[in-house]
Computed example of a mutant assay.
Amino acid sequence: MTDTNPQAAFWNSDAGHAWVDNQAMLDHMFQPFEALLADAVRRGEHVLDVGCGTGATTLAAARRAGAASHATGIDISAPMIATARIRAAQAGLAASFVCADAQHYPFEAAGFDAIVSRFGVMFFADPVAAFANLRRATRAAGRLHLYAWRGADENPFMTAAERAAAPLVTLPPRLPGQPGQFAFADAAFVRATLQAAGWHDIGIDAVDVPCAFPAAGLDAYVGRMGPLGRVLPTLDAARRQAVLAGVRRAFDPFVQGETVRYTAACWRITARAHVIRG
């Protein structure tokens, strides 16, 4: 992990600390995916959670797989991995965490029964190389079970802040074909990537998942997360407050009483490491 990797530099900057600081709110928001991924894990399995962040899905996998198993989380963000390790120790679960890039990490060959990920696989510099590395780390009957965002136009909550802020400040652009939140928006690209990496029985299904979190956490979400969160610290206090006030109004349609609600438009991506016959 070096500063020559833009993703490493980004997720070890304030972006990574923002996820740590907002861990409880984000875990609440994405709890439906935690449950969906836990359901994909079987008792006794060894599981790898890619882009594990602060560890919620890894710990859920560890609980589901049971004491005779092990769950490993890998993420490029040192602050998030540090938090995940603390959470695992506090929970007393059979989970461990690696701070590294899963594209290059020398996993033990055929060491995992299942690979899961909650929005953690869209950031590889070379997705084919990354998924080939993950396939080598998976046993012959091993499975892939991932969730990734569909397009920005299908996820108005995820893009509300940048749309509202665009007339007010210059935001870092989302570049087509580059690693990022919506890098897997094109299902054909995802399928071609997995095929080139040697995966089989690929399934890519559109799923719409209801998400919610307490409205008390909305200001922190708006001010710290996403492209706007990168820009706000560069503004003087008066302008920062003006931008936040303008952007905050864009989220009013998603607020229902004391709760923020939206639909996450995603792909459920499944595959097998090898062809299963018979």
Rank of each mutant, 00 (worst) to 15 (best):
G180Q: 00
P172N: 08
E162A: 15
L144P: 03
A148D: 06
E154W: 02
G180S: 08
E162F: 07
V169G: 14
P179N: 04
M158C: 13
E154D: 08
E162D: 15
L168A: 15
T159Q: 12
E154A: 01
A165I: 01
A164P: 00
L175C: 14
N155P: 03
P179Q: 13
Q181Y: 04
D153C: 00
L171S: 10
P167Y: 04
R174D: 04
L144E: 02
T170F: 15
A160N: 03
G151I: 06
G180R: 00
V169E: 11
A164S: 11
Q181G: 11
Q178H: 14
G177P: 06
A152N: 12
P173W: 10
A161C: 11
P173Q: 13
W149G: 00
A152D: 05
D153L: 02
A161L: 07
L144V: 03
Q181L: 10
M158V: 13
P167E: 11
L146G: 03
L146F: 12
P172L: 10
A148G: 06
A164M: 08
L171W: 02
P176V: 09
A165E: 02
A165K: 04
P176M: 10
R174Y: 02
N155V: 08
L168K: 05
A164Y: 01
P172G: 12
L146T: 07
A160W: 01
P179C: 10
G151L: 03
G180L: 02
L171P: 10
D153K: 00
L175Q: 15
E162T: 12
Q178N: 09
F157P: 15
P167R: 06
R163Y: 13
L144H: 01
R163G: 09
W149M: 01
P172K: 10
L175M: 08
E154I: 00
W149S: 00
A166L: 13
A166H: 09
A160F: 09
A166K: 12
H145D: 10
A160L: 08
L175P: 03
R143F: 03
N155R: 04
Q178P: 06
Y147T: 01
A165Y: 05
P179E: 14
F157R: 01
A164R: 02
L146K: 01
L175Y: 10
P167M: 07
A148N: 11
P173N: 13
P179A: 10
M158D: 07
A148E: 06
P173C: 05
R163A: 06
L171V: 09
P179K: 14
A152M: 06
N155A: 12
A164Q: 02
G180F: 01
A161Q: 09
P179G: 08
E154T: 03
L146I: 15
T159W: 10
Q181C: 11
R143N: 14
P167I: 13
T159A: 06
H145C: 08
A152G: 03
R163E: 05
D153S: 10
R143Q: 09
P167N: 10
A160V: 12
Q178S: 12
A160D: 08
P179M: 13
L144W: 00
P176A: 07
P173Y: 11
